[in-house]
């Protein structure tokens, strides 16, 4: 599944870039994140719990940041698996200064869903992914400038 969209952050480009690389911030912003431990250079072990309507499931996986080109762009790879299925997202995140002093973020990438979620959740995946991404950027935007 292709995922693409945009968001706004009320930060200067450098700050926006730094916020998105900060494991403490990411831990707060990734919806349902329980733990994010550094396991290597730009690589983290992720534990999260997804709760959506009556669905709930724990995932373990990793977050990797690559292709860093501060403060303009980087790639973010998130993958997780749990009893209810697995997911994998790989996207390029680009940061452009906006006239209002903040930044316009655009993201573009691929997401894969597998397991029971993929087999029975087709009609929900698109909206759910969008909502989770929206929540992620909302949390980031709440960080101090």
């Amino acid at each position: 599944m292709k995922i693409a969209g945009s968001a706004k952050l009320p930060f200067a480009a450098e700050r926006a870039y730094a916020v998105m690389q900060d494991p403490l911030v990411l831990a707060k912003a990734i919806p349902g994140c329980d733990a994010l431990e550094k396991t290597g250079e730009d690589e983290y072990r992720l534990k999260m719990k997804m709760v959506l309507a009556s669905l709930s499931g724990s995932f373990e996986g990793k977050v990797r940041l690559t292709d860093s080109n501060p403060p303009r762009s980087f790639r973010m790879l998130v993958e997780g698996s749990g009893k209810i299925g697995f997911m994998k997202g790989d996207g390029l995140i680009q940061i452009a200064s906006a006239p209002d002093g903040g930044v316009d973020i655009s993201y573009e990438g691929d997401a894969q869903i597998g397991g029971t979620m993929a087999a029975v959740g087709n009609r929900m995946i698109d909206m759910t992914a969008r909502m989770l991404i929206k929540r992620f950027f909302e949390k980031l935007a709440a960080e101090p400038a």
């Binding site: 599944m1 894969q112 869903i113 597998g114 397991g115 029971t116 993929a118 087999a119 029975v120 087709n122 009609r123």
Partner: peptide, 12 residues
């Protein structure tokens, strides 16, 4: 799908 998931996996 391209990864081998059967996305019509139920009567849903």
């Amino acid at each position: 799908d391209d990864n081998g998931q059967l996305v019509t996996g139920e009567f849903m």
